[in-house]
């Protein structure tokens, strides 16, 4: 707020210049209030319109029998918790919940371990460091639909490049049924999602590492803290606030992953990669049972929200420190 009021007198937008001639005293506190609210207004309108409205609408929808018919007639009978009961009672619910959990935990562990290893690696000074680091961002820059199509191709059981290479190396005789076997498909999808999440992890962790003063390492090395010890006692404690941010944001991003799964397996085979997100999508946009779809997405939102609260707490503690 303080920054807004200091900007106000010099602002050049028409609404504000009109007041320039008035002395601050005559304008009084009421006028200042109005100006303050004017500056908040865009943000409030924006949040209400693009966050508030959809969330309220989605919550309402989950308590209604919202179908294709509703679009024409505008009628959506109130059904209370019936949608939630159907969704939670369906045999698919436990599968999607477990898949969502495995997918999130697997992706986060993979992304973080590879991410921190690469971030530490890039701290070392070597030729082409900058070039390689920017190349690492490529997965982030590619459209997800394109990269999932290419991955689907590479993971093909019969003629995909991954199985061809494994066969040349005699690691497998018949090829791994990456996307065809319900027991393997989730692992394959997690692998692709790890690849996708590495740039985010490396970028944030690398910038966190840059913030650790070099003097700490110099002082530490005098006391014999080198290699693993310097990581354990200098890097890790100093990086912890960044780590918690990366992990919590990672969880929230991973929970809602939809496109990569739809592109690779569409939730199959035999629902082995169906998560809460893909299930909500299928219910709403394939089966057109929007009420049930909204119920699943609300469950997902609540889980996400839980992690967002953790993030806020962690973040506040980091700032306090």
């Amino acid at each position: 707020m303080t920054s807004a009021t200091t900007v106000a007198p010099t602002a050049s937008s028409p609404a504000v210049t009109a007041r320039r001639g008035e002395s601050p005293r005559r304008r009084g506190r009421g006028g200042e209030r109005v100006v303050q609210w004017l500056f908040i207004a865009p943000a409030v309108v924006y949040i209400a319109l693009f966050f508030g409205y959809p969330i309220v609408q989605n919550t309402l929808m989950s308590f209604q029998d919202y179908t294709t018919k509703t679009f024409f007639t505008g009628e959506a009978p109130w059904v209370g918790f019936a949608n939630y009961a159907t969704v939670i009672g369906s045999s698919l619910f436990s599968t999607t919940l477990i898949n969502t959990g495995l997918f999130t935990v697997g992706s986060i562990i993979g992304q973080f371990v590879v991410g921190i290893a690469l971030a530490l690696f890039f701290r070392k000074k070597f030729p082409l460091n900058g070039v390689l680091r920017s190349l690492l961002l490529v997965p982030w820059l590619l459209p997800l639909i394109a990269s999932s199509a290419v991955w689907k191709w590479m993971l093909d059981q019969d003629s995909g490049v991954i199985n061809q290479s494994l066969q040349v190396l005699h690691l497998t005789a018949k090829g791994v049924p990456w996307l065809n076997d319900p027991n393997v498909a989730l692992i394959a999808v997690i692998m692709v999602n790890i690849w996708l999440g590495i740039p985010f992890n490396v970028t944030i962790l690398y910038s966190g590492l840059q913030d650790i003063p070099q003097e700490l390492y110099e002082a530490g090395s005098l006391d014999g803290a080198t290699g693993w010890k310097s990581f354990r006692y200098i890097t890790w404690p100093n990086l912890r606030p960044v780590v918690s941010v990366v992990l919590v944001l990672g969880v929230v991003y991973t929970l809602k992953v939809l496109d990569i799964i739809l592109g690779l397996t569409g939730g199959g085979p035999a629902n082995s990669t169906e998560t809460l997100a893909t299930n909500a999508y299928h219910l709403s946009f394939v089966d057109f049972t929007f009420g049930a779809g909204a119920a699943v997405s609300n469950i997902l939102i609540i889980i996400s929200l839980l992690f967002s609260f953790i993030y806020l707490r962690v973040n506040r503690r980091a700032v306090d420190e």
């Binding site: 900007v7 602002a11 937008s13 207004a41 924006y46």
Partner: peptide, 18 residues
Amino acid sequence: MRKSTIAVAIAASVALAA
């Protein structure tokens, strides 16, 4: 920069409402 962003935001929200 900041001032113009705010002006744009106001204009945009008015346009959107319209």
